[in-house]
Design a binder for these strands. Structure first.
Lengths: 351, 351
DNA sequence: TTTTAGCACTCTCGCTCTTTGAGTGCTAAT
DNA sequence: ATTAGCACTCAAAGAGCGAGAGTGCTAAAA
């Protein structure tokens, strides 16, 4: 679709959207005529606006109100009109301060990033961790806790460490625990948990001989650890910020949105089905999730060593400040890629 | 303060509160007179209600409305009137199903518990992990990841396991990593991180000799691990549920509440300053947090081996269904205490 | 042909006024 | 001590009105 809008129309459209983004109210021709860039009378502007509405870029809440951008309008704005927002050096330094202050596990980094984004943009920040797939255990370790309890520690192929405390029905001594670790390392490393078969099980049984512990529950624990369908892959931070926007003072709308957040799986699908490295902008009903048809979503996947390890983004009203949000999301995503690479091991190639 | 309320007054008060809890509207004398338990006319009830108001148990939104329970009324209800709600076997079995389906790390268990509670009660569920204090490391372990990276695994005195990946500036081999673990075990176990002094540091230095790794950054990492000021100790689940209650359709109120959630530290103080094992019920302005003066909070600390490892609770409108919520919170808290104690690994019954 | 001034028209918003009805307090009778 | 009856109060809901912002259209000006 080639843009058939005259320069003046673009100017007017941009002015309308800019204005509407910042105060949320319909924009009238008289107000626009005060804009020096648009050097013509309100009557002319009215004509242009009528045509812009005709073409679908604008809408009228009612016949005697100003115009409001339509989704098509926002889309056009985002694709062609929006001028890149560059963060001030103050913003950047503040951001760096917060982000660098803690380099911890991936979860924590993401969470604090969500918070920072939320504060910076005054919308709701969200983070996503993709469902693990093809993850195998690179190394096992065990740790004696007490005579009935030991800990299983697992290094995964994504470089993450997971632990699990296991309570045994039998008394175990340190050597038993050590042997369990060795047995696991001999049998279950680098094996997709779905491919654990009877021979492997038997092998594990054999190696566990002498330890009063059965192989099958152990394998189940390992399996769960890898598959960890936590449901905790999606987090959001700063919902309260949305309450400041009149579009969410209608409680129903907010409720819908929050339900979408709680649903998680739906939103996860949306985010994970996104392709490419660009910042994704999903405006209103472009979102397959009906609950989010009144909001916009901006997010960017985070890759470490080429593989996506998560995504961060912002949810806000449809009239969100796209330029600014894009800049923030992009900046933070890039920062995270660096800082997670430092902390996180690039996946070893085990074949 | 001894209760000087006649049986009939109690009956009336209870009926008013029960009714108000379920529909949120002021209760009138005529409605109450239909209640068979209260065998008297609306006029009599009116007199009683006037006296109950006089005594501070009821309030009148305006002079020609029904009565609404005051905080004192709720308090009395909770302390003396409320009849214990017992969960239906259906509810219990459903609950067990959800809770037992995943037995994972503390964080995850708590999170899923919050969700379950939220669904069951239709209010917002929250979980709290206390600020660690007096926690020491019981045992260290290390795990070789790659030549520039190893993992530190720590068993704390609360029985928790924490891990941290450490990237070293120098090439380390497996033996180095093992030696680091041993050195830590020899020097830093059972020592409060605040009490690490120069002699201990020197001792650690000495034991690390030959490994190109400095003691002080290592100690700092251990310190952080224990103190873990993640800010992530408080989680909530199901805010959207609150939107169903008209008392929160005033966006301002909801915003206040959400701010309290985001603040975290305040709410954390409230929960952690609670003593005893009982279910705590904090009604409206009993809560030192002003933001929560329009809501009620019910929570219970979770102890494992006598030590508090967290708390779970529910936040809802002041007129929340105390009886039911108490029952749910109590039940789930007890369930959690069992399941967080460890993961039984017993051979015979697994399904 | 394009732009502009002018004007009638439309529709929301906020205001007041009224009506309605639920619920009360009080009084007098039971 | 309880109850029936009645006058009273007050919020909520609706009707009516004026103001004001913004439009579309027309006819004149550029």
């Amino acid at each position: 679709m080639l843009s058939e809008l005259s320069e003046r129309k673009k100017l007017i459209l941009k002015a309308i959207i800019d204005s509407h983004i910042h105060n949320g109210e319909p924009v009238g021709s008289k107000y626009l005529s005060e804009n020096k860039q648009i050097a013509c009378s309100s009557a002319t502007i009215r004509n242009e606006m009528a045509e812009l509405e005709e073409a679908g870029y604008l809408e009228q809440p009612h016949s005697s109100a100003g115009r409001v951008p339509s989704e098509k309008g926002y889309r056009f704005y985002v694709d062609e009109l929006m001028q890149q927002y560059s963060m001030t050096s103050g913003e950047i330094s503040e951001l760096n301060k917060i982000l660098s202050s803690k380099h911890n596990e991936a979860d924590v980094i993401l969470e604090s990033a969500a918070k920072v984004m939320s504060v910076m943009t005054n919308y709701t920040g969200l983070t996503v961790r993709p469902k693990p797939s093809g993850v195998v255990v690179t190394r096992f370790d065990t740790m004696y806790v007490d005579e009935l309890c030991f800990a299983l520690i697992v290094l995964t192929s994504t470089g993450e460490i997971k632990t699990k405390k296991i309570r045994s029905g039998y008394v175990l001594d340190i050597n038993d625990v050590k042997r369990i670790g060795e047995a696991l390392n001999m049998t279950l490393t680098n094996i997709d948990p779905d491919n654990i078969n009877v021979p492997i099980m038997l092998e594990l049984e054999k190696r566990l001989e002498g330890v009063e512990l059965l192989a099958s529950p152990l394998v189940k624990i390992v399996y769960d650890l890898l598959r960890q369908a936590d449901g905790s892959e999606l987090k959001y931070e700063g919902v309260n910020r949305l309450l400041e926007y009149p579009e969410f003072s209608d409680t129903e709308k907010l409720k819908h949105l929050l339900e979408a957040f709680d649903n998680k799986s739906g939103l996860l699908d949306v985010v994970s089905s996104a392709v490419g490295d660009d910042t994704n902008i999903i405006i209103g009903s472009e979102n397959p999730l009906n609950e989010m048809n009144d909001s916009s979503l901006i997010f960017k996947t985070i890759r470490v060593g080429g593989k996506p390890v998560g995504a961060i983004g912002i949810v806000g009203p449809r009239r969100m400040d796209y330029a600014r949000v894009c800049a923030v999301v992009k900046y933070i995503a890039e920062k995270l890629e660096v800082s997670m690479d430092g902390n996180m091991l690039s996946p070893p190639d085990e074949n």
